[in-house]
Computed example of a mutant assay.
Amino acid sequence: MGTVSAAEAAKFGAFAERWWDPEGPMRPLHRMNPLRTGWIAERVAAAGLAWAGLRLLDVGCGAGLAAEAFARRGASVTAIDASAEAIAAARLHAEQGGLAIDYRIAAPEDLAAEGARFDVVVALEVIEHVADRDAFLAALAALTRPGGRVFLSTLNRTARSFLLAKLGAEYLLRLLPVGTHDWRGFVTPAELARALRRAGLAVIDSAGMTMDPLTGAWRESRDLSVNYLIAARRG
């Protein structure tokens, strides 16, 4: 699979059984999820898109934290991941919760080759782990209908993100397993905006995500120096 890093897929597949444990290795994602899905929901509504029946694709879904949140809003959700272990955990959790989510072991280029199209495509905490960034964004664009929206969240490549998201989160606070991130794979907002434009997507909004180190709570901010969200529109 061209955009997939086998090593990254294996790394996250190893966490699959504990993905839904709010105090497990995905604890930061559990705490971040309401902010990132809520931010996306606000912009979907502002675009005049109704959640009921909205065709949404979650790329790099892991065990389904965001996919389930979107399904509960009424969207028709397809969710893909390269890890068979993560998809198995996602399917089990959705079944237990009575949610009908179409989970598939796939890369985005696989669905693009099938001619699939969606109203909204999301890729949350994924682009810093892919093998080919431009090919990945081109696939996301191909999967988005004209006028549709693409949403990404990722990590900025700054000295501050190295200290907080890499050294702090993995080595000092132990919020994430050591080796979760490679700082060299982080992408600046300017780099991501240029890459999105090359893929035929126009950036329309962005926001920072800031964590309170004492409580672990996340809030939207203007500070994009560590974690950030970005929204784009396909022309």
Results as ranks from 00 to 15, higher is better:
Ala112Met: 08
Gly235Asp: 14
Ala190Gln: 15
Ser225Thr: 15
Leu57Thr: 03
Val77Ser: 02
Leu175Thr: 01
Phe15Pro: 00
Ala6Pro: 06
Ala45Phe: 01
Ala46Ser: 12
Glu220Trp: 06
Trp183Ala: 15
Gly179Arg: 14
Ala113Arg: 08
Glu23Cys: 03
Pro22Ala: 00
His129Ser: 05
Thr37Phe: 05
Val121Pro: 07
Val77Lys: 02
Leu229Glu: 13
Ala139Lys: 08
Leu137Met: 10
Glu109His: 08
Ala45Gly: 07
Val126Leu: 13
Met32Leu: 13
Thr37Val: 12
Arg133Asp: 02
Gly24Cys: 00
Leu196Trp: 04
Ala7Trp: 09
Arg91Trp: 09
Ser225Gly: 13
Ala193Trp: 08
Trp19His: 07
Val150Asn: 00
Thr180Glu: 05
Asp102Ile: 04
Ala141Asp: 11
Gly60His: 05
Met211Tyr: 02
Leu143Cys: 06
Ser206Ile: 11
Met1Gly: 15
Gly147Gln: 10
Ser153Val: 01
Gly185Ile: 11
Leu137Lys: 11
Asp119Asn: 11
Arg36Cys: 04
Arg234Tyr: 09
Ala113Asp: 08
Val130Pro: 02
Leu124Lys: 07
Val178Asp: 05
Arg174Gln: 14
Pro189Ile: 05
Ala45Lys: 14
Leu57Asp: 00
Ile230Gly: 07
Ala50Thr: 10
Ala16Pro: 12
Leu224Val: 15
Asn33Tyr: 00
Asp81Val: 10
Leu192Thr: 09
